[in-house]
Design a protein around this nucleic acid. Sequence first.
DNA 1: TTCCATGCAAAGCGTTTGCACACAC
DNA 2: GTGTGTGCAAACGCTTTGCATGGAA
Lengths: 132, 132
Amino acid sequence: MARRYSAQKQIIEDTLAKMDHPTAAEVYEEIRKAYPQISLGTVYRNLGLMADDGEILRLSFPDAPDRFDPNAHEHYHVSCSRCGRIFDTDRTFPSELVRQVDRAVEACTGVRVESRVMMFRGVCAACRSGRA
Amino acid sequence: MARRYSAQKQIIEDTLAKMDHPTAAEVYEEIRKAYPQISLGTVYRNLGLMADDGEILRLSFPDAPDRFDPNAHEHYHVSCSRCGRIFDTDRTFPSELVRQVDRAVEACTGVRVESRVMMFRGVCAACRSGRA
DNA sequence: TTCCATGCAAAGCGTTTGCACACAC
DNA sequence: GTGTGTGCAAACGCTTTGCATGGAA
């Protein structure tokens, strides 16, 4: 059941942890700087497996490659419609609010919520004031 | 600025309205029953344009084709992790809750929310009781 | 020794696009 | 008549996969 150790998976994990919602290709390019022999297929394979195992999050956006998030905890994702940057909500986000929404969703649809990938669009603070 | 009238766009719009979160291919197949001469490219083109204009919603899921929703109003999407069906929240969903979340998101990330595509996973009522 | 993970390259699939033609205006 | 939308098919980009090899257990 447990996966066999592999240096590549370790590197992918460590690299993802240092990046900000990268695509698989971005992870690949970053790793290649230090380990030019790694293959894109391996990066995809490991990211996919980690996402399936719930270790990390895979985020899908229209017309764009998937992005990965090492933080699999419940949080929201917000992308700025001007600069495209992606923000996470953090621990300061009231968790009762999340639970309240879960309950309202279940009341409305009958679905008992297990996980949330919630994406918002808006304009970030930097873009609203001066420049992006 | 206004788009020119086209019978195809009209059909696509009408067909989408009658379906439940279909993919572009599903819309195409449905239309083909009555209008076999329509082309897949036209379906994609029109759905894409409508989504860009905010007329309809385009939903992206990992490892699956995009799905389209004729209802562009603020609502949540919930997909059942067992049967894969997609549910919408409806007007009974408390809108103050949505606004509360928007405010909390802005407090947390600095992003002023303009639109929400919120997707949950869980197990629907049908799957929880008997069979799907 | 066993068999899972890798590297490589090709295939797969959803989606977009270029072009010639048709049709709304 | 002018220019946007269509049909068709080819191209595209992201992602997965088959296969031979290498390395963990």
